[in-house]
Design a protein around this nucleic acid. Structure first.
Lengths: 340, 340
DNA sequence: TCCATTTACGCAAACGTTTGCGGTGACGAT
DNA sequence: ATCGTCACCGCAAACGTTTGCGTAAATGGA
């Protein structure tokens, strides 16, 4: 029980005026005498009055609260995005209520439901890996409820969203490997039903093609879980054979790290024999041995851009479909640079 | 505008009954005919009725929302705790609204304020590094508002809190170094006004004393920022001198990693010449070279325990001061084990 | 002195929900 | 015909706030 928080009524009663007067006095509305205004404000100050946001929400059908749905919180990229969202929300006077789906579709659906009943003003979503049916979002959009998607785009037409340029990121990474003299690049691909995986794969393909190199389908290994072990298993198998690639481009840093581990274990030197490039620029990527080349994604910026777009929708009442694409940046480190 | 969400009133109007009847029918209260009950429930289902949580909050002075205040979101340990909080809240039907202070006192105070006006039912707090005045929490506690502190304890008597056994963690770490034959252990200490830093320092001291080794005050270097660079700077200076320690125990993994970097740069081999142990078991600690010995903190468990304690306070209305201490676990890896 | 205007405030409804209390009608018993 | 007993339902208030409208007193002008 939140005992003792002063309300407008309390102030009104104490001053023998009506709640309306107090409300108007506090907000400097016209039609209130200087004297009353001062008395009200002084007492409000003294009682440490804070408006009850819940009552305001109910009254105004606006909660100044945004919902955020992410697959995981313990995740360098997503936590960075969340941080950006937090900041953006704060400066605009919004609160953030947070949910993680743990990559589970059912939880995602449920969370959307509870958030809606919490009367959030808008939703920021990066959907789960399992999600193939997007009707729980579609329903809301059809009702004109504002949702901004980030990083992972749903299969819905005409949404407002923010992504990074996964295609170019991948392209740059692979082109960089080729420039370094690597010719046979293995791709550790992400979950198939994620657009980002698709895009990164396309970038990989295009870079090879542009360099006149063949695209071998057996050089594309799906690593849907994105764990270190998964990629390690695949790589140690593949690099013990005779038909070995001479480089690895992984769809995420974890997989890349797994590849490095596997290569180390096999006694294959990185980057001399095999070059490795990851994706995301996770914290650890600069700290492992050798420091890993990777593609940086502007997570914080993605978060703040997403909030901006969402607030724009909320405040204008319009939902103008756009997809904002943030640039990636290749961070060249030792793992992909052959000593000259 | 959240257009078209059906309300109890809508159902009532459509069925020509009163809102009260609808409310009772939906909740299976007695005194409603089977027929009416069914009609109400069917229509509610059809209209996809969801109770308006805001109205409920206002009516019941209970929001089923918890506030969480952390210094940073992009932080392996804190994001793990947040994850635990999330889960705990979810299974108990609570929402979580999240704020990061960025280690700034002023923001902390402000956040507490806005959360209170959002009518949260309780607060979970790990205070900022800057915070020395805890009156913004004290005020609430005095009013019987439930707060559970985690990881970083405020200087307030009789709180409910969850911490890890920083003392023992540090003790174990240093004892381990000594057992490995290291004799002159440097301590990279955390921010002085954090209890955790104090505790870890005490553990360090005690372990040295118990082993009959001297505690040299000049072997205790404060690293208040906890960045890689900070520790790197200190260590490269210290280890270029002649009076060199032969081991490093850092108050956090980042600092330890900085030490390793500095040592590598100086051509000093880890662990052969100098052993290094960190604190927290951040993700990267197992992946750097050499894999780093560190002290694991049960972040997720801390989060879920903190929620449990908070909900207990909320639901019982009682605030029984306790400090729950979770065990740490030394994770021995290469960085501290001399080859035999 | 009287009317018109302004100043300063209160009433009441509304947001969506819950709940104590009261009321209506049907029915059986007397 | 009267009464009591149910089963079923509605009224109204309440949570804290805002706001259109109404109204009293005070002021101004003639």
């Amino acid at each position: 029980m939140n005992l003792g928080q002063a309300t407008i009524k309390d102030i009104a009663k104490a001053l023998n005026v009506s709640p309306s007067t107090v409300s108007r006095a506090l907000k400097d509305y016209p039609g209130i005498s200087e004297e009353t205004r001062k008395k009200v404000k002084d007492l409000a100050e003294e009682l440490n009055y804070r408006p009850n946001a819940v009552a305001l929400s109910l009254r105004q059908s606006k909660s100044f609260t945004l919902g955020v749905i992410v697959p995981e919180v313990v995740h360098f990229f997503f936590s960075t995005v969340i941080s950006g969202i937090e900041e953006g929300a704060l400066v605009n006077g919004y609160n953030v209520i947070l949910c993680q789906t743990n990559e589970q579709y059912e939880r995602e659906v449920k969370m959307v439901d509870t958030m809606i009943s919490s009367q959030i003003d808008g939703l920021l979503v990066s959907h789960s890996r399992e999600t193939k049916d997007f009707s729980h979002f579609k329903r809301l959009l059809d009702r004109n409820f504002p949702i901004v998607f980030f990083d992972r785009l749903p299969e819905i037409e005409n949404t407002v969203s923010v992504i990074v340029d996964d295609f170019m990121g991948a392209y740059d990474a692979v082109a960089h490997l080729i420039l370094q003299g690597y010719r046979d690049v293995l791709h550790l691909a992400g979950p198939k039903n994620l657009k980002i995986s698709e895009q990164r794969l396309s970038g990989y393909r295009k870079a090879l093609q542009d360099a006149g190199l063949p695209v071998r389908e057996d050089r594309i290994i799906p690593c849907p879980n994105g764990t270190l072990e998964e990629s390690q298993t695949h790589c140690s198998l593949l690099f013990s054979g005779t038909d070995r690639p001479d480089a690895v481009f992984a769809s995420n840093d974890m997989a890349a790290a797994g590849a490095i581990e596997a290569l180390k274990a096999l006694g294959i030197s990185v980057p001399e024999t095999v070059g490795v490039v990851g994706f995301s620029n996770w914290q650890f990527s600069s700290m492992i041995a050798p420091p890993m080349t990777t593609v940086a994604q502007p997570g914080f910026e993605m978060g703040s851009r997403a909030v901006s777009l969402l607030l724009q929708c909320i405040e204008s009442g319009k939902y103008n479909p756009t997809t904002e694409v943030l640039p990636t940046a290749l961070i060249p480190r030792a793992s992909s640079q052959r000593k000259k």
